[in-house]
């Protein structure tokens, strides 16, 4: 899967490294900004109040 992704990336090796780094950063950014907050709000119970 990742090998195929590496083959699909255009350009010589150093360009591929830059592109891969950019892709990783984009994925991390999307996770931190949208995916992780959604998971935390939807699935993680962190109650600090007393009540029913």
């Amino acid at each position: 899967m990742y090998a195929a992704l590496w083959r699909v990336l255009p350009g010589p090796r150093w360009v591929k490294v830059l592109e891969a780094t950019a892709l990783i950063l984009i994925v991390l950014g999307v996770c931190v900004e949208w995916v992780f907050p959604w998971i935390a709000a939807t699935f993680i119970q962190s109650e600090s109040t007393v009540g029913q």
Binding site: L28, C31, V32, F36, P37, I39, A40, I44
Partner: peptide
């Protein structure tokens, strides 16, 4: 692992 690190650490 990234999520846990984000949840209890970074965030």
């Amino acid at each position: 692992l990234l999520f846990l690190g984000w949840h209890v650490g970074f965030n």
